[in-house]
Amino acid sequence: MDADAEAARQFIEAAAPDYISLIDRDHRVAGLYNMVNVPQAVWIGESGQIVRPPEVAGTYDTVRSRDKVTREVPTEVQARRDEARIVYQDAIRDWVKHGAESKHVFSPAEAKARLTVPDDNVATAHANFRLGQFLMRQGKPDAAEPLFIEARRLHPESWTIWRETEEKNDAGLAAGPTFWARIDALGEKKFYDTVDMAGMPG
């Protein structure tokens, strides 16, 4: 999900993956699947059925444990993040091998119970965001700005909309003081929800 494909290019070219990498300038996938952050992932079976609905793709809520000054993550939290990644990657391998028999594949009822679906505000937020991105491509940032403000207002849970439309630092990251203020404002809420999977660190 990058409004600017060139921002993604260096990462994709460095990784040179043998899978397909798509550029989603307007966050269409986030709109269709009701995603709010990256990385999120969906498991889709051979017949096009969702067998695991959108979830955090095997990472861990390290962001809120970062030291406010050094931005370093405590060692024990890093260890949980690394473990979460391994558990998730092993689960994908298990699914590839065992298909529908994998213990990580949800039944339709279980998958439905874990779905989050968009309401009218979320759908309208994505409409404003997409039109704003269109105007940015037309070289009209001033016309886009009110649409982005409206998108953020209507869908405050979306980190993808917020970070894409926020000012980036020299490293291309929306990780300035406003980002950290927003993290602090989460209160008890998580930046990354825990993945609902056997063996996942809580």
Partner: peptide, 30 residues
Amino acid sequence: PVASSDDGGAWLLGEGAEARRSSLESLTAP
């Protein structure tokens, strides 16, 4: 959903939340 630029020069007519909900709840990947 309807979105438009302040000058009325750009409009978007989007897919409704209901359609997106039922699409997801069918569990057929959109």
